[in-house]
Amino acid sequence: MMNDPFARIRPWFSGASLLWPVLGLLTLLVFNAIYAPGFFRLELRDGHLYGTLVDILNQGSKVMLLAIGMTLIIATGGVDLSVGSLMAIAGAVAAVLVTQAALPFAAIVGTTLALTAIAGTANGLLVAAVGIQPIIATLILMVAGRGIAMLITDGQIITFEHAPLVFVGNGHLFALPFTVTLVLLTLGVTSLATRKTAIGLFLESVGDNEKAARYCGINTTLVKVVVYAFSGLCAGVAGLIATSNIKAADSSRVGEMMELDAIFAVVVGGTALTGGRFTLVGSIVGALLIQTLTTTMYNLGVPPAVAPVPKAIVIVAVCLLQSEKFRQQITSWFGRRQA
């Protein structure tokens, strides 16, 4: 403990796991401060804040939302591969409703989110009630979901000019993009529910040892179904944002590979895939880390298609850092040198 260089700042974080993602994010920001002039410049125009940092928050909002839902699922020892397809379904439903039905906007949003939450519930039932491995159970909806979305839009890209729906992904509130408010709201409610009530404890106990949790009287089936439904809800909101961003429902592209980004954000953020302890703030930091990485590469002129390479390196590096065997190997190397 004496040799721990971070001993002083460790208590600032809610657990050591948050240290590395924050350090990673800081490194990227410092890199940008040196190599990308104007990265930190913020500008107030028409009462709206503009700048690269704001862009990162805005564009990262979808992954952040997905990561919040995904964190809870991973805490219970599961995973949800269907969120990208659910985003496509949400976009398709919303676009068809605004263009073809004369409904109030609240009803449209309500219907869309209810549908994705129901789809999430179906995932949860497959996992908890039928007992299928989460990767497989959610793979079904991942495969079929995009087809369903295409069926809803009839294979077409539906464009719209519906003011409230356009506002969701492009509007501003309190000088910041409205998407930031959505993320903060979701994060706030989820944090309160998991940290100020027993729900968080239920999640961790299910992820740590499901059998023990059941013997303690926790309804593990219900807990699991609820987290998958909640993840579906988050995916629905993210899908609305993605569709609103481009003012069109593009069923084959919306949310593509998004599930992987979300899982990545959660793992980088310090929540282990094996379940148990989780950190929502860590996942948000993880999501911001990905988005900053992507934005940095755009700024450096790296073609968007090549961007996955550094992402892959970060994923494997983070996995290695979390691996007990790898740590032992590294310590044994350094141990020998010091001795």
């Binding site: 996955p308 390479v309 994923i315």
Partner: peptide, 13 residues
Amino acid sequence: FLVTLGGMFFARG
């Protein structure tokens, strides 16, 4: 799952 996911991003890039 994670390693081959990394492999997927890498090979695609």
